[in-house]
Design a protein around this nucleic acid. Structure first.
Lengths: 196, 196
DNA sequence: AAAGCAATAGACTGACTGGTCTACTTTAAG
DNA sequence: CTTAAAGTAGACCAGTCAGTCTATTGCTTT
């Protein structure tokens, strides 16, 4: 059986370093140093750095999906309020990391999707899963008459995800959540509105 | 005086490689190889890789600003039509680079703004310049009664820039301009509309 | 023609990269 | 108790990294 303790330590340290510095800028030795694991163990659990990177993505995506479900599929809360909470959580995270980390998947998507098709596919799947969560929430909002959807729920979900990711990117370079606030304001004021 | 020919070759090759692979993944030797310049010349014109990277950003920003002015401040064209053309040009570029390159400033913003404050400042200034171009165009549209601005032109410009950058990122991972189309559609359908 | 500087040229350096290799220790099964 | 496998440990490898160094070329100014 797999001893998950060491493996998990590697993935956690890796996720942290890669979030901060990016994939290419993060060396395996740096990961080993921060969690005190020798190199022999690393290549016992992972066949290569790419393999390791994919494991980091998978772990992050799975954990994040849990919080996403908790926020966006909470049937006790009105759909638009769920979205509000999702954005608030994102803003809070941005503060916590001092506007430096942002979104791991977004970061890696930017850095690696032109570099490796394997990574691009993996990241694309994560994004698609997220979009589906949005679609579900938007359909709920539509069903309850809270919003009118002039295109398709899928297109609107894409709009929200891309807009949010872009706002996170801009917040990093600006070191301020202001772009995230602007996005949210205009989104709720003009896009997520009921039919007139 | 500066011999600009060699320096320009270095910057152009660098911009191309960095666009494709990112900053950290692009080695100086690779740049030298693609344009047949010896290392002595590189360190004659640039004091370090960071200095070189900043020159690449500056060159790209200046060139891009020209096309931005040509598109967004063309007073012969209605403001919203100018925006349409801007988006169309972005989509075309995305096709040309096979959905791999995207936006150099966005890429570097993602990769470097957590890594170096010098880079972050430089990239932030470029984004701010772009936003000002949008602000100008949006004010024109407002003055002509084409759109109603419920927040401020600055907030709306931020919204458009971040949404567009996010759509480019998503287009890269999806290898399709679909997210860019969705963004444009919903933007013109629900955000850039006249007062009712 | 001589001097001086801008620019070219590329061998070289120490540090670091991802990855391999062998040796050792621990755990579990028969 | 024996044995095999899982996991730990880190020295080591070839290659690459950004950056330095010295030597040489070419042009300009005197």
């Amino acid at each position: 059986m797999k001893n998950n303790a060491t493996r998990d330590k590697l993935i956690d340290s890796g996720a942290q370093l890669i979030s901060q510095q990016g994939y290419n800028a993060t060396g395996i030795n740096a990961v080993l140093k921060t969690c005190g694991v020798p190199k022999g163990s690393f290549y016992h659990y992972f066949s290569s750095k790419e393999d390791f990177g994919l494991a980091v993505i998978e772990r992050f995506a799975n954990r994040y999906d849990e919080t996403l479900v908790a926020l966006l599929e909470d049937s006790d809360t009105p759909p638009l309020e769920r979205l509000r909470r999702y954005f608030a959580a994102g803003r809070e995270h941005m503060h916590e990391c001092d506007h430096a980390t942002g979104c791991l998947i977004g970061n890696l998507g930017q850095e690696l999707s032109g570099q490796s098709d394997t990574f691009r596919d993996a990241l694309n799947l994560v994004f698609q899963r997220w979009e589906q969560r949005f679609v579900h929430c938007l359909k709920d909002a539509q069903a309850q008459g809270d919003i009118a959807i002039h295109t398709t729920p899928e297109a609107l979900a894409s709009f929200i995800l891309t807009g949010w990711e872009g706002a996170i990117l801009r917040a990093k370079t600006l070191k301020s959540v202001e772009p995230m606030v602007h996005f949210e304001t205009i989104l709720f004021q003009q896009v997520l509105v009921p039919s007139p």
